[in-house]
Simulated assay, not measured.
Amino acid sequence: MEVFRAMADAHPALLWASNTDGMCVEFNRTWLDFRGRSLDEERGQGWLDGVHPDDRDRCLRTYTDAFGRHEAFEMEYRLARADGVFRWILDVGGPRYDAMGSFLGYIGTCFDITDRHTREDMLLKAQRELSREVHTDALTGVGNRSLLRTAAQSLFGAGSTGWVAVLFVDVDGFKAINDELGHGVGDQVLQQIAGGLLAVLRPGDVVVRYGGDEFVAVCPGISGIGDVEEIAQRVRGRASVELPERRVTVTVGTAAGPASSSTLDALIEDADAEMYGAKHPV
């Protein structure tokens, strides 16, 4: 341990060493300065007091599992600095042996990788924001056709279970609203219709602005054709707008089928045809 102290205290990385019982017995000066604690406070499992509570069990489990097999390990966890701020640490540890090959315990080297985590978090946030923009209708905040196609890949096809309902929703008299009241009012109507659809459908349902004044809702996991009309009735009751000049309603067409043997395009076509028939009865 004297050799460890002499070499380790001059090292810029955070270093530690454990004995054959797995208990940490040495920490270099860089570690102790980082933590703002004494060697006696960190020894044993005292160092775990500085590990973030959400990381502590995983951290200890990784170490003890590797120790039991005398294998090297890498792990990342958050460790409290002397000022109380948690920093991300990359801990690389492995077994150490004497000249005769006898196991002496472990030695580890730790690096502050917080900046890397920050960059990765920023990149992930940017990717999520880009994905949201790509799949979202800018006016109404619901999905667009891109989202619809992406959802179809996971909802339909071999291996899918249950039934899927598709609702084709068309705003009644929308052209007259734009012509008589202006496109600003028309935009508000579409936004409120979209909000009504989101409010009445389940969190797992997919709602998109299909085009102009048309919306499509895809509702997976229904038990059968009997559920479809109940969903449509809820939509008709909620997806309407009260204007001072008039009440704006919607016409809804529906279709449903087994997810394993149906296609999104076929269900949309059937629901669109039913909607058109309801709006223009022969």
Rank of each mutant, 00 (worst) to 15 (best):
R209M: 08
G226H: 11
E229R: 02
G211Q: 03
V208Y: 10
A256H: 13
D270H: 10
V218A: 02
Y210R: 02
I225T: 15
I231D: 14
A271L: 02
V252Y: 05
D265C: 04
E245L: 00
A232R: 08
R246S: 08
A271Q: 09
V218Q: 03
R202Q: 10
D272W: 00
D213F: 00
T254G: 03
E269F: 05
A271T: 07
L243E: 04
R246E: 10
S262K: 06
R236K: 11
V228H: 06
A256V: 13
Q233T: 13
G224M: 06
E269I: 07
I268M: 06
D227C: 06
A217V: 09
E245Y: 06
E269T: 13
D227R: 10
G221P: 08
R209W: 00
D270R: 11
D213G: 08
R246Y: 00
G211C: 05
E269C: 12
V207L: 05
E229A: 12
T251Q: 01
L267V: 12
L264I: 08
E242R: 12
P220F: 15
I225N: 12
V206R: 00
E230L: 07
G253T: 12
R236Y: 04
E269Y: 02
I231E: 15
I231R: 07
Y210A: 07
Q233W: 04
S262C: 10
C219W: 06
A256R: 14
T254H: 03
R247Y: 02
E274H: 07
I225E: 14
V241S: 03
E229S: 06
R238W: 02
E274W: 00
V216I: 11
A256G: 13
D272M: 04
S240N: 14
V207S: 11
E269P: 00
G204A: 12
G253W: 00
E245V: 07
R238V: 11
R246K: 15
V235I: 14
D272Y: 01
I268A: 09
R238S: 11
G253V: 02
V228E: 12
L264Q: 12
I225A: 15
R238I: 12
G211K: 14
R236Q: 14
S223K: 13
A255K: 01
D265A: 14
G237R: 14
R246G: 05
A256E: 08
V208M: 05
D227V: 04
V206C: 11
G224H: 13
I268E: 06
V228K: 09
E229C: 02
R234T: 14
V228R: 09
P244E: 14
G212E: 11
E214G: 04
S260T: 15
T254Q: 05
P220Q: 09
D270N: 09
L243F: 07
V218W: 07
I222H: 06
V252W: 02
G226Q: 12
A259W: 07
S240T: 13
T249P: 01
V241M: 01
V241N: 01
P203M: 11
A259P: 00
D270K: 12
T251S: 12
D265W: 03
R236N: 11
G237W: 07
V207N: 02
R209H: 11
G226T: 15
G212V: 02
A273I: 01
G211R: 11
P258M: 12
